[in-house]
Design a protein around this nucleic acid. Structure first.
Ligand SMILES: Nc1ncnc2c1ncn2[C@@H]1O[C@H](COP(=O)(O)OP(=O)(O)OP(=O)(O)O)[C@@H](O)[C@H]1O
Length: 668
DNA sequence: AGGTCGTGGCAAGGG
DNA sequence: GCCACGACCT
């Protein structure tokens, strides 16, 4: 038996034991929201709820694994039947089952963002939306527009007008391209990430009986990070809670940081209207951070006008004030940080309790070099995922093509690996294959592609004969054709070959089902090559984007590159509500720290003198300046000397006092 | 016309 | 460090 009373405070306990019906938990950082829903799941199980009737939706699959692991530990048994994962993963599971109902074959494949962009490029060519210079939006932009429209459940024209107004004159062409894009996805029996949500919503909406059948399976639905869900996700939640009505969502409006994928804070603000009779809970004690860090965090978020005022009381010790580290140059910032990390490790702080957080993935470059120099291994989160790497996707293209022969993007990718075959020839071959006329290809193709095509034919014939078992197929590629290509192309192919071997190991653990493997691969958000849990990984320092750090916590946190234009990011600040969202990112970053927070930036940029982030000046009184002077010692080595002084905001950046908050939680 | 290869401009965030 | 584009070659 779990002693819920002693593990939770009174507010948390109330949620855990009285969280039936529609419930919203709205609470600040570190107040135990995640802990509360984790215990709620354990409580439901203890009360006899069947595990397969519980659905726990999280923001990442990693978060889901961690929470389920925690519940298993609490319950002292494994829980195989519990449904947990991201909206996308959940949607895919249902759609595989009901593919025919929505006009897809069950072997449809998933397009990642690069595939989607490539397909959009083709769609744009089709409608004549081509041309160079800055007069035409990039395929990435057009895809972003179409994607936002799906996620926000709005029209393309609307989205362009509101968020991409510089392309308003091309709205008709963009709409046409989006239509072609839609058709080609269907033709290719493929879905992008947005389609997973859209088709699930449509499926549930279109058939009352089916909606009953599906939603009847989920007696208890719990959603973490609800502030970052979008319109289509909230519609899915509504439909899924149709039969039982037990929907518990937790979130913090101050941590909403995904507006670019249409996260909509109205999901929280309108919760009571959407679910009449909903209970609203608050959690008001922060269990994570020291008083100093919490005071800083509260003062960050107070600068935002469009934010609910929430109480967040401390339970911790006072602790040290956040420390400001101005470095002379970006290189110096990297080495100062690396030295600080070495020092912390030396003091006995475990690597897993240290994190470096940054606004954008490429901000970590200098530091990575300095850590490498010192032989410090780290766990990296942000930027390109493992399954997005070019060589990994090349190999996957073969598996996709054999699993779903209509997958245009996979075919193009696979075919253009061969010499003499470019986009045009690949397209011709794909069209012939698709119509069952592959045998005609030899005669119809131009001479220069003959040799490459002959090699492809041989490779493909052999590949097709193999057992459709992902590990077998990958093994064949790594031993044979794809290894050959890598060796031809690179002087040093080994790192890439190793990645492919890692993928094969991953596939072995996934079992024999090719469809399952491809699904798992396209929704895996892991960054490490060793998807296999490396023991030492737990001990490593973490380098992460702030977005990827959501929900996590560390003893010591370094937030780096606090330079105006970088953080806040210039482009983001210009969007509607952009500056406030950047500030929320700073709030999320700071509230990851349990005991010690360090804020760094460099004074010199590449060509210009940097301006430090205005966010620093806004909260100046909560920061101490550890000014690091650089000098060369007698031995010719560069040293950094601490010249402590109080941090005083200069008038240039001093923020004007802001008027009060919009409203308070009480008004909900 | 289509494929390859070199390079200049460029980089926000993610399922 | 990656991608899109243009120059050049077949
Ligand atoms: N009642 C409690 N007693 C002891 N520790 C607690 C309690 N509630 C929460 N904690 C601890 O406080 C920390 C923060 O909790 P949790 O991650 O659940 O907060 P959260 O509200 O989800 O945070 P955030 O929104 O910032 O991600 C965790 O280490 C958690 O174990």
């Amino acid at each position: 038996m779990i002693d819920f009373k002693s593990e939770l405070n009174d507010q948390q306990y109330t949620v855990v034991t009285e969280g039936e019906g529609p419930c919203l938990v709205l609470a600040g950082a570190g107040s135990g929201k995640t802990r509360t829903i984790t215990y709620r799941v354990a409580y439901l199980l203890e009360q006899g709820a069947p595990e397969n009737m519980i659905l726990l939706l999280t923001f990442t699959n990693k978060a889901s694994r961690e929470m389920l692991g925690r519940v298993e530990k609490l319950m002292g048994r494994t829980l195989k039947g519990l449904n947990g994962g991201t909206f996308h993963k959940f949607a895919l599971g249902i759609l595989k089952k009901y593919a025919r109902t929505i006009g897809f074959a069950p072997n449809f494949t998933i397009l990642d963002s690069e595939d989607s962009k490539d397909l959009m490029k083709l769609a744009m060519e089709e409608v004549g939306l081509t041309g160079t210079s800055k007069k035409i939006p990039s395929a990435k932009t057009v895809h972003a527009i179409a994607s936002f429209a799906v996620n926000a459940d709005r029209g393309i024209a609307d989205v362009i007008e509101e968020r991409f107004s510089s392309w308003e004159h091309l709205a008709d062409d963009i709409t046409a391209a989006a239509e072609r894009y839609h058709d080609r996805k269907r033709m290719a029996q493929s879905m992008d990430f947005d389609d997973l949500l859209k088709h699930l919503r449509n499926l549930l909406q279109s058939d009352e009986e089916l909606c009953k059948t599906i939603s009847g399976q989920f007696k208890y639905i719990l959603v973490d990070e609800y502030q970052d869900t979008n319109k289509i996700q909230s519609e899915i939640v509504k439909l899924l809670s149709h039969v039982w009505g037990n929907i518990l969502v937790v979130g913090d409006d101050a941590q909403s940081i995904y507006s670019f994928r249409a996260a909509d804070i109205n999901n929280i603000l309108d919760f009571k209207r959407e679910y009449p009779g909903a209970k609203i809970f608050k959690l008001e004690y922060n269990y994570r951070s020291t008083q100093s860090i919490l005071a800083l965090a509260n003062s960050i978020i107070e600068q935002n006008k469009k934010q609910f005022k929430k109480t967040l009381k401390t339970t911790g010790i006072e602790g040290a004030r956040a420390e400001l580290l101005p470095a002379p140059t970006p290189e110096d910032e990297g080495s100062i940080l690396a030295e600080r990390i070495v020092q912390a490790l030396h003091e006995g702080v475990p690597g897993r309790e240290i994190a470096v957080l940054f606004r954008a993935a490429h901000h970590s470059q200098q530091l990575e070099m300095e850590l490498a120099k010192r032989g410090i291994r780290y766990d990296y989160r942000g930027g390109m995922r493992f399954f997005e790497r070019a060589h990994v996707k090349d190999a996957l293209a073969f598996l996709r093509a054999v699993y779903n022969p209509m997958d245009e993007i996979a075919w193009r990718r696979m075919l253009t690996l061969y010499p003499g075959i470019g986009p045009a020839t690949a397209d011709a071959i794909y069209q012939l294959t698709r119509t069952g006329a592959a045998h005609k290809a030899k005669d119809m193709l131009s001479k220069r592609s003959h040799e490459g095509y002959a090699i492809f034919e041989r490779d493909w014939r052999e590949f097709e004969k193999k057992e459709k078992h992902p590990a077998v197929l990958l093994n064949h590629l790594v031993e044979g054709p794809y290894r050959r290509m890598l060796e031809e192309k690179y002087d040093e192919p080994n790192a890439r070959i190793k990645d492919l071997e890692q993928m094969r190991l991953f596939a072995e653990r996934q079992g024999k089902n090719l469809g399952r493997f491809l699904a798992e691969a396209s929704l895996q958000e892991s960054y490490a090559a060793d998807a296999q849990k490396d023991k030492s990984e737990d001990e490593r320092v973490v380098l992460s984007t702030i977005h990827q750090a959501k929900g996590l916590e560390w003893e010591r946190v370094f937030v780096i590159n606090l330079v105006d234009g970088e953080f806040p990011n210039e482009r983001a600040s210009k969007e509607i509500g952009g500056m406030e969202e950047e500030r929320r990112l700073f709030y999320v970053a700071s509230t990851r720290a349990k005991r010690q927070l360090v804020l760094s930036y460099s004074i010199m940029g590449g060509f210009y003198v940097n301006q430090r982030s205005p966010f620093l000046d806004e909260v100046a009184k909560h920061i101490v300046n550890a000014h690091m002077g650089r000098r060369t010692n007698d031995g010719g080595e560069v040293e950094y000397v601490s010249e402590d002084e109080p941090f005083v905001s200069t008038p240039r950046n001093a923020s004007k006092p802001r008027s009060g908050f919009l409203s308070s939680v009480e008004d909900l």
